[in-house]
Design a protein around this nucleic acid. Structure first.
Length: 589
RNA sequence: GGACCUGUGGUGCAGCUUGGAGUGCACGUCGGCCUGUCAAGCCGAAGGUCGCGGGUUCAAAUCCCGUCAGGUCCGCCA
């Protein structure tokens, strides 16, 4: 276990076990902790490993002691050098042990439902049910402590850059747009509700109007959306906002914070964080959050098949990916890839395997007999493949083709990435609108308060989908850490955006009236950012799931297996809120 | 809302294709032996609703259907 800089032990003990060293030989000390392991050699010699917050020490006992793993003990003993040849180099305290010991059992423990040694992967449900034991394991102790260090480093970075920490309400007002909100019915206003904030977005903009200049908060955000490996109902963000700043400034604030956070986790960051435009990211990697640790970029082969008779290749855009591990792609795995592509929304996926032919390379594929010689030759040239390679092609609208193949690139390429490498990248120049909904209204990519790019202002009316915004995402190893933007601070621009989004003045004033009103009284130009600390921590400690860096997470179905939440509540509680619960479908049958 | 994977003594696994007595391995637990181990060792024992319900069959951990729980993903996450 990592040796922490320890405060002086107090109370029932005078030392943390992890701080004991050869220098202490001869001292009489008292320590407290849990029994990690007992090795009994008969009643005349018993070794007890005692573990506390700081580490493990070996305690030598000479009389039979009734101990089991996880008993809580207090041990008085003399620090002694271990006999010649019995040092344990894998233990920080491995040169010494406690002898002449008196062991007092402070708390007995039932046998643990699972091993607290890190050797075995324990069933997730069991871990979560006994989370208090799971958290005793070294890996979890490390994760949670690194998280604390990251938080601390982020705070220090923010303070250093002149930001003021301000808390914002958890009981907020509904803003029916974006993520589904957790609803908190009001007892004093029957029929009315607060919601838990999906982020402090509007609050922090009001703080800019209030003149705080630079605000930050390590803020809890809540979204009632389905959970994933990188998504929990509640998550923690570094949230910040600053006045009279440009996009560059905000990016530099955040760069400082994530650099500090990385260093706190023991990962040095070299150089500046690079940037890629959204369009480039989509075109080359097929995602707006590219994993920059490996190449294997998408290749545009639209022109190769410009005159093709193959229907699967008659599409506005053709994107190709050279599979990184072609020999593992058996026929059935290729079939799986086709299914995967379809589940991602593609009409199909075409694969072509490069095989040696009578004169040069040939392509083996379900469509090989329809391929012209020129097409084969040009495809091989465009993709720069050689014998044994497999080419995957998706044809569709540009964005769809990129997205589907981009996901396959991730599926196939994951093990190409070096797990010890950390590649941050900024993604900039997002489109202001991501598309048009069923009712013909434009949909914001980020949120409706995002400032359009100055250069694209005149295209707002003529070609709104081509308008870029002053927004930017931070990506680490293929995970979106967070996003931010320069906000609209002028009523006239905001009105234009609302009208493009199909939000009437009445709706706007219902939902965001307090913000729009505030903007009438002197709003500074401002912008900000927020990034997920759960995700950042998970990446920096090498975990693939944010549950591993959250003390008490929920399962994918939103249950807390330790407390049993969510639970049925008594009818009188609903009554007090003026509510009742409808019978469930399954109760009716 | 949908797809896929998993569910076998307290824990981790094997057994499942090809149905034939709850069969096996490792850890843990309990008892015994053991004076330098550190995943201690050796001997012995206990411990099971094969997630749950139904079906097929002479016979189901194994095949089929449903369901619950956990996980991964799609949708969703401004």
């Amino acid at each position: 276990m990592e040796s922490t800089s320890l405060v002086d032990a107090k109370g029932l003990r005078d030392r943390y076990v992890g701080s004991l060293r050869s220098d202490d030989v001869g001292k009489r000390v008292t320590v407290c902790g849990w029994v990690a392991r007992v090795r009994e050699h008969g009643e005349h010699l018993v070794f007890v490993d005692v573990r506390d917050y700081s580490g493990i020490v070996q305690v030598v006992a000479h009389s039979s002691v009734e101990l089991r793993s996880e008993f809580v003990v207090r041990v008085a003993g003399t620090v002694a050098k271990r006999p010649e040849g019995t040092d344990n180099s894998s233990l920080a305290t491995g040169e010494i042990e406690l002898t002449d010991t008196a062991i007092e059992v402070l708390s007995e423990a039932e046998p643990s439902p699972f091993s607290l040694q890190d050797r075995a992967e324990i069933d997730e449900a069991t871990r979560l049910r006994f989370r208090f034991l799971d958290l005793r394991r070294e890996r979890m102790q490390q994760n949670i402590r690194v998280r604390a260090k990251i938080n601390s480093a982020i705070r220090a970075s923010m303070e250093r850059q002149g930001f003021t920490e301000i808390e914002t309400p958890l009981l907020w007002t509904p803003t029916p747009e974006g993520a589904r909100e957790f609803v908190v019915p009001s007892r004093l206003h029957l029929g009315s509700s607060y919601v838990l904030p999906q982020s402090p977005q509007l609050a922090k903009q009001l703080l800019m109007v209030a003149g705080f200049d630079r605000y930050y908060q390590i803020a809890r955000c809540l979204r009632d959306e389905d959970l994933r490996a990188d998504r929990q109902f509640e998550f923690t963000q570094l949230d910040l906002e600053a006045s009279f700043v440009t996009q560059r400034d905000v990016m530099s604030f955040i760069s400082d914070a994530v650099t500090a956070a990385s260093q706190a986790a023991g990962i040095p960051l070299e150089g500046e964080i690079g940037a890629i435009t959204w369009k480039d990211a989509m075109d080359r990697f097929g995602v707006d959050k590219p994993d920059m640790r490996y190449g294997n970029e998408l290749i545009d082969v639209t022109s190769v098949f410009a005159g093709t008779s193959i229907r699967a290749l008659s599409a506005p855009c053709l994107k190709a990916l050279v599979a990184p591990n072609p020999s593992s792609l058996t026929r059935s795995r290729l079939d799986n890839l086709v299914d995967r592509a379809k589940s991602l929304g593609a009409k199909g996926l075409l694969w072509l395997r490069v095989i040696p032919g009578s004169d040069g390379l040939q392509l083996e594929s379900p469509v090989s007999k329809f391929l012209t010689e020129d097409e084969s030759k040009n495809l091989v040239a465009a993709t720069n493949v050689s014998d044994g390679d497999v080419i995957l092609i998706v044809g569709d609208e540009w964005q769809k083709a990129c997205e589907v193949l981009g996901q396959l690139r991730i599926d196939l390429g994951r093990n190409q990435a070096n797990p010890g490498e950390f590649r941050y990248v900024w993604v900039i120049d997002f489109p202001l609108f991501e598309g048009i909904d069923e009712e013909g209204r434009l949909v914001s990519t980020h949120h409706p308060f995002t400032m359009p790019n100055q250069e694209d202002f005149d295209k707002l009316a003529s070609d709104p989908l081509s308008v870029r915004s002053q927004s930017y995402d931070l990506v680490l190893n293929g995970w979106e850490l967070g996003s931010g933007s320069i906000r609209i601070h002028r009523g006239d621009i905001q009105s234009r955006i609302f009208s493009l989004l199909g939000v009437t003045e009445e709706e706007a004033s219902n939902r965001f009236g307090f913000l729009l009103e505030a903007f009438k009284y002197g709003a500074p130009p401002h912008g900000g950012f927020a990034f997920g600390i759960d995700r950042l921590t998970a990446l920096l400690v090498g975990e693939e799931n944010i549950r591993e860096v959250i003390a008490f997470p929920k399962t994918q179905s939103g249950s807390d297996l330790m407390t049993g939440a969510p639970k049925q509540i008594e009818a009188k509680v609903w009554d007090l809120l003026g509510l009742s619960v409808k019978p469930q479908k399954k109760d009716l049958s």
